[in-house]
Simulated assay, not measured.
Amino acid sequence: MEQTNDAFPARRVDITTRGGQTDIEIDGTRIDPGAIKAYSVSHLAGERPEVLLHVADRNDAQWSGIARIAVADLPDPGPAAGVFLDAIDPEALERAALARPDLGTEPYSLTKAMLTQLGEWARGL
């Protein structure tokens, strides 16, 4: 049985993605892509799906209508970064950095290669 709430009518949301480009429409009205920096979709059984839009700059964004709004601070990445770095094998990092095809000969090139390697590992590459 679908739950309805007449105070907050359901809205039609269309999200179309092509490569890195995303178009979002709400009830047929296109949202400026520059106004949105991220979005998430969630759906719990027996409830309406929810779309959370993260606006890029609240000063320039103009919105009208009814919405449930959630404001949250971004989590501190420090603890997760610490756990990630604690799991790195220094020997494996050095081997991977020295084997990189983009390893240069200028000062700090090994440090740069290690940071690039760590970034790729963090992204699962």
Rank of each mutant, 00 (worst) to 15 (best):
D23N: 12
Y39S: 05
S64R: 15
A38W: 02
A72I: 06
I24D: 01
I36C: 05
D23K: 14
D23I: 12
G65S: 03
R58I: 06
G28Q: 00
V51G: 07
A61Q: 04
G28E: 00
S64Q: 12
A70I: 03
T29M: 09
I69W: 11
L44F: 10
D60M: 12
L53K: 09
V55M: 09
E50F: 05
V71C: 09
E47Q: 15
L52W: 05
E50K: 15
I69C: 07
P33F: 02
S64D: 11
Y39R: 05
I31A: 10
R68A: 13
R68V: 12
L52C: 06
H43S: 15
L44D: 14
K37D: 07
A67D: 04
R58L: 10
Y39A: 02
I24K: 01
P49T: 00
V55N: 04
D23E: 14
D57N: 15
V71F: 04
T22I: 05
R48K: 08
G28V: 01
I66N: 12
K37I: 11
D23L: 14
I31R: 09
I26Y: 07
A61P: 02
I26L: 11
I24R: 02
V51I: 09
S42M: 08
V55W: 10
T29D: 08
A56N: 13
I24E: 01
E50W: 08
L53T: 05
V55L: 13
K37F: 09
D23R: 15
G65Q: 02
